[in-house]
Amino acid sequence: MNDSVVVTPDWLAAHREDPQVRIVDVRDAWEYDGIGHVPGAVSIPFDSYRDESDVDRGTLPGAEAFADLCSEAGISPEDTIVAYDDTHGVFAARFVLTALEYGHDDVRLLDGDYSAWNREYETSSETPDVESTEYEPDPLAPEESPLVDYAAVEAALERGALFVDTREAHEFEEARLPGAVRFDWREVVDDETRRLKPADELEELLAEYGITPDREIVLYCNTARRISHTYVVLRALGYENVSFYEGSLTEWLANDGEVESGEVE
């Protein structure tokens, strides 16, 4: 796995005291305070960087709001950010996607989650002292962003792109984009270790669903949370032609987009 995208607990343990490595805990504040956290981590809860009021595309919080969060947490644009949660990384991956969209060049996902870290390394209940910054976001231009809108999705359907639905079976059967394949985002996680499966195993697994690097891939779910994890994993494996439908099925249905339903043979 590319460690510029996903880092192991060993990597984080070796680098966590580097002043330019900023660790972000996206769990609820009570978990951060009451259960403990990776030493040196700052708390930026999931709900704080998710906004459903249409301030930006989908549930993105807007560049200014994201900059305020980073500034308060003492993060600078030049820092290496490592984000984690305690849910196999799905909430932390959303932070990674958000940071990338607002121009943060070096943001990575912790392979595993807080529980995986806690099995091998010390935790802390102390809140670190941080000096606030004046974080300046640099949002990606539309042509640079992996995020695509309704019109781009329509065009991708006509081109025969591979649409990957990361939701559960009952959601997929109720309504899905035409021709989509279902790939539950949790399939990439080893339940015993709580970490990602080995890269060669992941590549073989993805290939079983036709999700290969030579395909144009469009990811969607309901509200773009679960696809964040799949997107980060595909990037770590070197997939390049991957689009991220931020509006996902929620927007598609609101625009009366064509759907299929029922079980798949």
Rank of each mutant, 00 (worst) to 15 (best):
residue 113 D to S: 03
residue 210 G to C: 03
residue 134 E to S: 15
residue 220 Y to E: 07
residue 164 V to H: 05
residue 188 V to L: 04
residue 130 V to S: 07
residue 153 V to M: 08
residue 147 L to I: 12
residue 184 D to R: 10
residue 213 P to T: 03
residue 141 A to R: 14
residue 212 T to G: 01
residue 171 E to M: 13
residue 119 R to H: 12
residue 182 R to L: 13
residue 132 S to Y: 05
residue 194 R to S: 07
residue 175 A to H: 10
residue 202 L to V: 11
residue 203 E to T: 10
residue 165 D to S: 01
residue 121 Y to C: 09
residue 214 D to L: 04
residue 140 L to W: 00
residue 162 L to P: 09
residue 131 E to R: 12
residue 215 R to C: 11
residue 192 E to F: 07
residue 182 R to A: 06
residue 189 V to T: 08
residue 201 E to P: 06
residue 133 T to S: 14
residue 122 E to S: 15
residue 201 E to W: 04
residue 194 R to M: 13
residue 159 R to G: 00
residue 170 H to E: 14
residue 198 P to N: 10
residue 217 I to E: 02
residue 157 L to A: 05
residue 129 D to W: 01
residue 150 Y to D: 12
residue 208 E to K: 15
residue 182 R to G: 04
residue 150 Y to W: 13
residue 219 L to V: 02
residue 167 R to N: 04
residue 142 P to H: 00
residue 132 S to W: 06
residue 183 F to Q: 01
residue 159 R to N: 10
residue 121 Y to I: 11
residue 182 R to Y: 05
residue 166 T to Y: 03
residue 160 G to V: 04
residue 207 A to P: 03
residue 204 E to W: 04
residue 163 F to D: 05
residue 133 T to N: 09
residue 207 A to Y: 03
residue 205 L to N: 12
residue 154 E to W: 02
residue 186 R to Y: 14
residue 124 S to M: 11
residue 215 R to I: 03
residue 127 T to P: 01
residue 171 E to Q: 15
residue 191 D to I: 11
residue 202 L to T: 08
residue 161 A to C: 09
residue 156 A to H: 12
residue 211 I to K: 09
residue 192 E to A: 14
residue 195 R to M: 13
residue 212 T to I: 06
residue 140 L to K: 12
residue 177 L to I: 13
residue 114 Y to N: 00
residue 134 E to T: 15
residue 123 T to M: 03
residue 211 I to W: 06
residue 175 A to E: 11
residue 145 S to N: 01
residue 122 E to P: 12
residue 155 A to K: 13
residue 126 E to W: 04
residue 119 R to K: 15
residue 183 F to E: 02
residue 170 H to R: 13
residue 200 D to P: 10
residue 160 G to D: 07
residue 113 D to R: 06
residue 182 R to E: 09
residue 182 R to W: 05
residue 202 L to M: 15
residue 167 R to S: 08
residue 172 F to L: 11
residue 120 E to D: 15
residue 127 T to W: 02
residue 118 N to S: 14
residue 149 D to N: 15
residue 220 Y to P: 10
residue 131 E to M: 10
residue 168 E to L: 12
residue 180 A to N: 00
residue 162 L to Q: 13
residue 214 D to T: 06
residue 173 E to K: 09
residue 153 V to I: 13
residue 177 L to G: 05
residue 210 G to K: 12
residue 214 D to F: 08
residue 154 E to M: 13
residue 191 D to M: 11
residue 197 K to T: 05
residue 183 F to R: 02
residue 197 K to N: 08
residue 214 D to A: 11
residue 193 T to V: 02
residue 183 F to M: 07
residue 192 E to P: 06
residue 158 E to V: 15
residue 190 D to I: 10
residue 151 A to L: 12
residue 155 A to C: 02
residue 149 D to R: 08
residue 208 E to A: 07
residue 119 R to W: 08
residue 174 E to Q: 01
residue 195 R to I: 01
residue 148 V to Q: 10
residue 146 P to I: 00
residue 113 D to K: 04
residue 142 P to R: 10
residue 203 E to C: 11
residue 121 Y to D: 12
residue 178 P to Q: 00
residue 186 R to Q: 15
residue 174 E to R: 10
residue 206 L to K: 00
residue 127 T to N: 06
residue 161 A to S: 14
residue 215 R to V: 05
residue 118 N to A: 14
residue 158 E to Y: 01
residue 217 I to W: 01
residue 190 D to K: 01
residue 190 D to N: 11
